[in-house]
Design a protein around this nucleic acid. Structure first.
Length: 572
DNA sequence: CGAATTTGACCGGCGC
DNA sequence: GCGCCGGTCAAATTCG
């Protein structure tokens, strides 16, 4: 990368030299002219001089601007480099020490940090992103056997330490004990104990609990993802086992019920159903919190959904068009292993931001819908921007990043986060970050307040290079984006090291994959987000960047329930 | 033959 | 109290 920057610098310097030489020649030419010529000729010379001076001035300005641009590019490059290094620095010790520390704090399954299960979890976590699920399962089985022996103590331990549950807890529990999570846990307990009464007791205990749950304290929060998907389910990186299917009222398409099988005690469920209005749209609803380490791709999904959940749980989730909601977690929220707690700087100081959001319930469940469908394949950026904040007619404010009206078959009261859906996504959780990318891209068209960064309309009047600089700086300063970038890169690296089949439509070319996640549209405008900036860099440059990140070779375990390839028939 | 899926039965919550 | 409906269970079936 530095060599490429140097190339740019050399080019600019060479250009300046050429201009200087040209100016010198022009000056000398004007000096050579004879003082004995008539007025007409002197007038001509004067004009010539004036125009030459004007040209000189313009060229000088140009040079100055180029210098500025160069210095800013260098500055931005260094800042980005520092970000990458810090990210890589976080990753490296993990790899070297073989500790359960996740690639980035973004994905930290903090549930593993303090619980009595910690040591066991560490053993499991060693496999993170590198071991096959078979190994994980073996580990899980082993752990479960041990669990059975010390069930009670373990559960207590879970209560004490499992952030994934009890930070939720702490989220809400800090204020009031979280019924949601304790329910999750209790449900597990219940399963372990094979008792039916526990549930009732818990449910009773729950009632009247947590006022902080925005909608229904009795139900676990859900994150529903609407995505155009040809396969039966989205590949979210987890292993699922189908345990039921129903024809839900109002939708002829059957709703399939899955539970996570990565860990036998994992309480996470998901429902998969085709949209009634648009059969190509798959609605995947997640509920619960993974209690085990997640694969890279699963983390990607978990992160995105967790952000939505954080938004859902955030008291600030009432939306205002154009202002948006930051899903801060003074309430530490955890979904699918993504922990929003005080230890996770991301959420306490680096909130996810959703341009507009509100929370409402769907069938008594507080639900956030991430709408990843788009009407067009890779909609032009400008068009996209124009529709990014389009309002919906839903009773609840929707995060509608699409120009199409919400066609969710879910409760219309469900809050919707509509994000441009890169149709190449197709069962790719990593592409969720495409949506984050688009959110970043929205800096372009709208005043965008994000974590104290505001891109105002003035920015739009700036010179393109200044826009790049300003946008890059603003976004680079944005910790959320940093996390998203890290996540995207993590996913990207994971893909390149994982199953080749995961490279949908890109022929397995990881570079193309990367571009899928960071659409060129934003580049075209010369604005957009830092990922565009990264993309804009010469290819060898990015290759070097990739090499900067010491990610391990990743293997993605698969089951029938997690079809990865676009062409695959999906689960049976 | 074990694992995954299918599918009808069952349970609990909720509205009337 | 009853019926509807969502969700889950578990036996039967299918698959690899």
């Amino acid at each position: 990368m530095s060599s490429s920057i140097s190339d740019v610098a050399e080019t600019l310097i060479a250009r300046k030299k050429v201009v200087d030489v040209r100016n010198a020649v022009e000056d000398s030419t004007s000096n050579v002219s004879s003082p004995n010529e008539d007025d007409l000729e002197s007038e001509k010379k004067e004009d010539h001089l004036k125009s030459a001076k004007a040209k000189m001035d313009a060229v000088k300005e140009d040079n100055e601007r180029l210098k500025l641009t160069l210095s800013q590019i260098l500055k931005d490059y260094h800042s980005l480099k520092m970000h990458f290094r810090s990210i890589a620095g976080q990753e490296e010790p993990t790899l070297q020490e073989n500790t359960p520390t996740p690639p980035t704090e973004f994905f930290q399954p903090a549930s593993l940090l303090e619980s009595p299960m910690e040591e066991e979890s560490k053993l499991v976590s060693l496999t993170l992103g590198r071991f096959s699920s078979v190994d994980e399962k073996r580990e899980e089985k082993r752990n479960n056997n041990e669990k059975n022996h010390e069930e009670h103590g373990k559960l207590d331990g879970l209560e004490l330490g499992l952030d994934c549950k009890f930070h939720l807890g702490s989220i809400e529990v800090m204020k009031n004990p979280s019924p949601e999570n304790s329910f999750d846990e209790s449900k597990e307990d219940e399963q372990n104990n094979n008792t039916c009464t526990a549930n009732k007791g818990l449910k009773t205990a729950r009632s009247g609990d947590d006022e902080n749950l925005l909608q229904n304290p009795l139900k676990k929060p859900r994150v529903s993802i609407r995505a155009t998907c040809d396969t039966q389910t989205m590949n979210d990186g987890c292993q699922w086992r189908k345990y039921g299917q129903k024809i839900a009222k109002g939708n002829p398409c059957p709703r399939a019920y899955y539970r996570c099988t990565v860990s036998s005690s994992c309480p996470v469920r998901k429902q998969v159903q085709r949209c009634k209005e648009d059969m190509s749209v798959l609605i995947t609803t997640y509920e619960g919190t993974h209690n085990h380490p997640l694969s890279v791709s699963a983390k990607a999904m978990a992160s995105a959904t967790s952000a939505a959940t954080a938004m859902l749980k955030s008291g600030s989730s009432t939306s205002q068009p154009g202002l948006g909601v930051s899903a801060t977690s003074s309430t530490s929220t955890n979904l699918h292993g993504f922990n929003f707690n005080s230890r996770n700087n991301l959420t306490t100081s680096q909130p996810f931001y959703f341009p507009r959001a509100s929370i409402s319930t769907s069938q008594s469940h507080p639900t956030v819908v991430l709408d990843l469908t788009t009407p067009n394949i890779s909609p032009p950026h400008n068009k996209l921007s124009s529709t990014l904040f389009s309002a919906t007619s839903s009773s609840s404010t929707c995060l509608n990043f699409s120009s199409t009206p919400s066609s969710s078959s879910l409760d219309s009261n469900t809050s919707t986060l509509k994000v441009p859906w890169n149709t190449v996504f197709h069962s790719r959780p990593e592409a969720l970050f495409n949506s984050i990318n688009h959110i970043g891209a929205s800096y372009n068209s709208q005043p965008y307040i994000h974590n104290n960064v505001q891109i105002t309309p003035e920015v739009q009047n700036m010179h393109v290079t200044d826009k790049i600089t300003a946008a890059t700086k603003a976004i680079a300063r944005d910790p959320t984006f940093q996390s998203a970038l890290a996540a995207a890169i993590t996913s990207f690296i994971g893909n390149s090291g994982g199953n080749v089949q995961e490279n949908h439509g890109s022929g397995g070319n990881s570079e193309q994959n990367f571009h899928l996640y960071f659409p060129q549209e934003s580049m075209r405008d010369g604005i957009g987000c830092a990922t565009s900036y990264v993309n804009k860099l010469p290819q060898p440059l990015f290759s070097q960047q990739k090499n900067l990140i010491p990610f391990p070779p990743l293997t993605f375990s698969r089951s029938k329930s997690t079809p990865i390839s676009l062409g695959e028939e999906g689960e049976k």
